[in-house]
Nucleic acid binder design. Structure first.
Lengths: 168, 168
DNA sequence: CTGAACTTTCAAAATATATTGAAAAAATAA
DNA sequence: TTATTTTTTCAATATATTTTGAAAGTTCAG
């Protein structure tokens, strides 16, 4: 397979993939393009390679930056901005986990804690089922939270790092 | 907080939550409703409680069944079908992990393996970056795959079960 | 069989999400 | 300063996804 063809397929599949995970297709494609670009590239490069508008590139790049997956590069003597993606894929995964945890898991746990305080008799079947279900979802959420923390810290910590190696 | 109010909020938040994860809002809401319903309920119950059409309920229930999260219950002497969700939340999580792994991670790994065979000189910077990136994403994917397998099997296996307890 | 009760399908409509592109804003050069 | 280049914004438009509801299909009691 030729490089250009493979690159194209990687970008397009990565976009389709992102969609399934609630990530904007274009954002995923821009990220894919930056991941396989050895050097920083400009908005115009992205517009051209993905055939999308300037505004679209701009908004999605901003989003990627807010996820700390992409950074702006200033080349001295150059007026235009360049962009570059974090290339260490483990760092990328860690960063995504961190962000999703913060943006989604944490608010969910907060909600569940509120819902635990429902009035009423636990003898009532409906009430009992609700209270028990909220409690077990919360428990699962807390476990996931801790497990993800361990994953994030795995590189920094010898012991958990060694444990995680068993999974490899 | 009153039960009805709490239930309503749980269902609506669960739906919003699902959306962020690429899950149809209504499907998530139906699942939430079934999770907090102690007894099996009918299509009409769901239509009424969530104010949605019959067709919508039918399609999303089918989907939930295909994920093995919900089952059809035949009540003898009753003509209508009842539905009930798996209530063991650990099993629910396991099932979702299994399915997403099968539907998403496996195809992605397959794609990456294909893309590894790109022609061209590894001395070329573009080619090298592409090949290296595909290889490291694949490696990450394989690790995630194994880690998820361990998570799925954790209940069945004393040793890994004990290890996972450390994360709780 | 027949017809009532219930389920499924799917084209059309509604809704939600993403994209464009041109105008405004910002940055820098001259 | 003013002109020029580049970035950002956002209303309008386009696209994708979800939902409806009525018709077709199925099941089963009588």
């Amino acid at each position: 397979m030729k490089l250009s063809e493979a690159k194209q397929q990687f970008i397009s599949s990565w976009g389709a993939f992102g969609t399934q995970w609630g990530i904007n297709r274009t954002m995923a494609q821009i990220h894919a393009l930056l991941l396989v670009s050895p050097d920083p590239i400009t908005q115009d490069d992205i517009m051209e390679q993905l055939s999308i508008s300037r505004g679209n590139v701009n908004m999605n790049i901003r989003d990627l930056i807010s996820w700390s997956l992409v950074e702006r590069i200033i080349v001295s003597g150059e007026r235009r901005e360049y962009f570059s993606a974090e290339k260490d894929i483990w760092k990328v995964a860690t960063q995504i986990i961190k962000e999703r945890k913060k943006r989604e898991l944490d608010p969910m746990l907060k909600l569940l804690s509120q819902l635990e305080n429902v009035d009423g008799d636990k003898k009532d079947k409906e009430t009992k089922q609700f209270v028990d279900m909220i409690a077990s979802i919360k428990k699962l959420g807390l476990s996931a939270d801790k497990m993800l923390d361990v994953t994030i810290k795995a590189e920094e910590n010898w012991f958990t790092g060694s444990i995680l190696k068993m999974f490899k």
